[in-house]
Amino acid sequence: MKQHRKNRIYVILFVGISILISIFLVFSALQENINLFYSPTDLKNNPPVSDKSIRAGGLVKENSLKRDKDSLKIKFEITDLKNTISVSYEGLLPDLFKENKGVVATGYFYSTSNEFIAYEILAKHDENYVPKEVKKALE
């Protein structure tokens, strides 16, 4: 290979590696902010200090879902299998919201009572795609 081409490759490599390092530094500094939601364990260890709304996520704990009889109010618990927080919400729910399935709630967390008042509930779909017939056959 000709010398001037080799030199160009070196320059590209040098610039490329510098960009990679700077991006790595930026992302490691932003690590916490890139996460879409906090887990119950995060909230327990580092309760939010400001009164801004945050997102909490995890699984809807089995047998924790309680629906109000004459309104759209619901109560349930979010768990990451180590810690849980109790969530209350009023409004419509996405189709995939179910016990034992992933959920992301947006709202305000009160660490003293371990309560989360949500104003938005998003359901998280997992990576499993199972045909209906197969599920029936398994049961």
Binding site: Q31, I34, N35, L36, F37, Y38, S39, G57, V104, L122, K124, H125, D126, E127, N128, Y129, V130, P131, V134
Partner: peptide, 22 residues
């Protein structure tokens, strides 16, 4: 990171989490 988007279902080195019919 924690994301709302699910991890990939098509895996190269292990069994995919999407059924083969799909």
């Amino acid at each position: 990171w924690n994301t709302l988007h699910q991890p990939s279902s098509i895996r190269i080195f292990e069994e995919s989490t999407i059924s083969s019919e799909m």
